[in-house]
Design a protein around this nucleic acid. Sequence first.
DNA 1: ACCTGAACACCGTTCAAGT
DNA 2: ACCTGAACACCGTTCAAGT
Lengths: 201, 201
Amino acid sequence: MTPRSYHHGDLRRSLIRAAVIVLERHGLEGLSLRAVARQAKVSHAAPYHHFANRDQLVEAVAEAGFADLRAFIIRHLETTTFEPGAMLQEAAVGYVLFAVEHPDVYRLMFGAALKDHNPSEALLASSAGAYGLIHGGIAAAFQGQPVDEARVVTLARTCWSIAHGVATLTIDGHLGATDPEAVAEQTRAITGVLWQGLRAG
Amino acid sequence: MTPRSYHHGDLRRSLIRAAVIVLERHGLEGLSLRAVARQAKVSHAAPYHHFANRDQLVEAVAEAGFADLRAFIIRHLETTTFEPGAMLQEAAVGYVLFAVEHPDVYRLMFGAALKDHNPSEALLASSAGAYGLIHGGIAAAFQGQPVDEARVVTLARTCWSIAHGVATLTIDGHLGATDPEAVAEQTRAITGVLWQGLRAG
DNA sequence: ACCTGAACACCGTTCAAGT
DNA sequence: ACCTGAACACCGTTCAAGT
């Protein structure tokens, strides 16, 4: 664990940090291994001692991204006041705000899986952690009542779909709103429609 | 209009067709201008007489994609039987099935805007045409009743968000279902939750 | 064990030159 | 008007060689 080179202490960590900097500066297309190596001040071949190829570095960035997303939503819920019973809706707002604040990381997180059809265990665990927040929120909303697990899965997938849909359409400029406050308000309006369906069902 | 070269009749069209072939064969990362030129059997510099750069070719493919999406949904509605009043829901099924059948084109359509912040008029018109289907469907659902246009926009954006969310999560493998029939059924289940919200609101 | 420099086969883009 | 070939500065990846 935490391999230490004589040059960088922990090159793997440095490379992931450098990758995020390059990503946010030049977008996904500009995220080349060589650019990351330059950012980390090592030779262009050095990253290959920590990542088999570009995709594996991208996967590591995605893994960190899902962990950050989860933490961001939890922090958002802790620092925001909302109506009792509106926690799921406010979690969606946190979800979308993360995407708006880190659009390139968010896009990378959902583009990482498609290249390689064998995502790493670590990436699966990290994305499952974020999904677990939603699933747990749904299950909690049924407190006391008898629950059909398949129904909980459908509802969790519904929530994830709406949050992901609003997040991606927003960062791609298709829903108009750009500043965080307008995005949050629009997300509440859109998830509000869904919310009525959840209560009706 | 329809420029004709002595070598290819209509190279611009040929390049767009070649681009779709390369895209479906090698993914977005493999969609290089040089590979498209090879596929179209012209020199690697020839595309520059029809597209200023790679992004403009990608934009042209996206434009064609939105037109195809619109046509696909219309055809799906014409060839599928559904409960009266469930047209919007079935349109969402058509929307998601298009993404599942053409995942690389669909991803390209929504990745095209972000590179260049000045999308072409043609691309805007094409994507507006697809969005118009949703907006029209919502407005039609209110037939006779007094309508608040802002409310229609919110509902249309809600429908687009859920369809886009299901589509992207499905093609990225996050929702389990892969074969068209399972995808259609899951889409009906998920949009059904939203549907109850629409009727309640 | 970790890092480097040279090498190879690719890119996007430009541009003088051909028909 | 449309197309080509050579050129430039980039890539990802490999590998022998250095410390």
